[in-house]
Design a protein around this nucleic acid. Structure first.
Lengths: 141, 141
DNA sequence: TATTGTTATACTCTATAACTATA
DNA sequence: TATAGTTATAGAGTATAACAATA
């Protein structure tokens, strides 16, 4: 199967979709970047800033800023590492966990409206594509 | 079929993929935003800045900047509209067209490497998902 | 000396508001 | 008065380089 234009087509489709998603969150308390970090903490539990940066595939200084903004909102808490004084453990606060649950189940209105217009086979395709994309991104360097 | 978590899962997958794609283009002459605009011009031919902004789903001032940067690189040219003095026609230059062709066919190395690791059915799923995502984004406001 | 995290700084992308020129 | 585009300005997201603290 020819994958030559798929890389380009997929790139353009996701960059445009991301543009929409970021722009349509003005009603939400947190940005897509912040939500993504919260979702990682919810999925994998408390971890260090370095681990979270690796998981989200951003550089450590970028994650420092995201964590600082989330801590200011009271959505995450930072506690010292029990044995290594250099490290810090970041974990979801109760409001942070509640927000993740809330966003996951109900808030993505714009996209849910569009998903509702799709038929079952299209939904199935997207669900599979999420798996595939996730595996592509989480592949080793 | 349950679409409750799909909206959230798809959001997080595409935002992370976009992060990768943007970060991995440091070797390229143009950013993903610039390439997306060039691809639209290549697909649909010359158009006004307003039309291009609508197609890319960004606000006109954002597109003004993208066009200015592409013009500075010599990848697009701006010509006056033949009958309406307010409008401008943006079109690909020869180098601009060559760049689109080049990027589309060969440059997306990181993603092509990952696509090459997928089997035919996974490729087919992604190809369909591109169609679905594109239709979601190009839906009316 | 190596590792973890942060601070300092800068660039890209995108937006809203205000302005200019033309219809 | 309405439309097309631009300029001015601001904020989010991300990066690299340099620094501080700890191992």
């Amino acid at each position: 199967m020819d994958t030559r234009t798929l890389a380009s087509d997929l790139s353009l489709a996701v960059v445009r979709l991301t543009r929409h998603l970021r722009g349509r969150r003005t009603d939400s308390q947190v940005s897509l970047t912040q939500l993504s970090a919260l979702a990682s903490l919810s999925a994998d539990g408390p971890m260090t800033p370095g681990a979270l940066a690796a998981k989200e595939r951003v550089q450590p200084p970028s994650m420092t800023r995201v964590i600082a903004s989330l801590a200011e909102l009271g959505l995450v808490v930072r506690t010292p590492h029990p044995t290594d004084g250099r490290q810090i453990i970041v974990s979801l606060s109760d409001p942070g966990q509640a927000l993740v649950t809330d966003e996951t189940s109900a808030r993505e209105k714009w996209m849910n409206d569009r998903l509702a217009a799709l038929d079952d086979s299209q939904i199935a395709v997207l669900r599979e594509s999420v798996e595939i994309i996730s595996s592509m991104v989480s592949d080793s360097e």
